[in-house]
């Protein structure tokens, strides 16, 4: 991931992120923001979740927003499913095309293999425990992992890209009457349209948690420096830490 490094002022600049990673990252930020907001709009218009093939008002629900203090009518006032559907499907395409460009480029250049695949030594329980302990210490003592992903980071990125995103994609299209007519196995895979919808909604919560942790990590590693590196590609490394 890191390459080169020229002297400048009171430290070194590390070439950290490739143009592909930076462009895809920010398109992804826009797409995910729209996907989240439009998804919330769609959900608010029918704020109950079910399990299996069917689910409707009056059918036993596994989650009701009204149990959490927001009545059906209040939620309906907040949600706009027309706006939600239009933008959810629009940015699903943006997300998908962007993701394919990102994944294709990085597979071709070996980015996943080189930067994200953890080595054998990294996967020992001792190493993982040590990293976790170091990770939870606050404030952070060292910037040792400035230009390399940590093992936990690698594992969470791999899970996100190769497990979470495909599952969100599949649980999303498993709700479509058009696509499931052509691919009925999607219904069997999740045990029904409503199960897919519920998993898709729980997945949204997982996504929000990921973003919260991601932003905390960025803040902990140096907010300005890290955000700048995702824009310009260069990370400033203080004297003596490179």
């Amino acid at each position: 991931m890191a390459s080169g490094g020229q002297r400048s002022g009171g430290g070194q600049w590390l070439r950290l992120h490739s143009p592909n990673v930076r462009i895809c990252h920010w398109i992804n930020v826009i797409a995910c923001t729209y996907l989240l907001l439009s998804g919330i709009h769609i959900f608010l218009d029918f704020p109950e979740l079910y399990w299996g093939h069917t689910g409707y008002q009056g059918y036993p629900a596994i989650f009701k927003l009204s149990d959490w203090g927001l009545s059906w009518d209040e939620a309906g006032e907040l949600g706009n499913r027309m706006w939600g559907r239009n933008y959810h499907f629009t940015f699903a395409w943006v997300f998908m095309i962007n993701g394919l460009v990102y994944a294709g480029w990085n597979l071709a250049r070996g980015h996943f293999r080189r930067s994200m695949l953890p080595g054998r030594a990294e996967l020992t329980s001792a190493h993982l425990r040590a990293e976790l302990r170091e990770h939870l210490r606050w404030p952070r003592r060292s910037h040792a992992s400035t230009h390399r992903y940590g093992t936990l980071q690698k594992l969470s990125y791999l899970l996100l890209i190769f497990v979470y995103v495909p599952l969100m994609f599949l649980t999303g299209i498993a709700q479509s009457p058009g696509i499931t007519a052509a691919a009925p196995w999607l219904l069997d895979m999740f045990g029904g349209r409503q199960t897919a919808r519920s998993l898709h909604t729980f997945g949204t919560v997982v996504f929000v948690l990921f973003v919260v942790v991601h932003l905390l990590e960025v803040a902990a590693a140096g907010l300005v420096n890290r955000v700048r590196s995702m824009i310009t590609g260069n990370l400033r490394v203080p004297e003596g830490e490179a």
Binding site: T54, Y59, R193
Partner: peptide
């Protein structure tokens, strides 16, 4: 068949 409402509910 399943009636799939764009709101999110479905019934057979």
């Amino acid at each position: 068949t399943a009636h799939v409402c764009e709101q999110g509910w479905s019934a057979i």
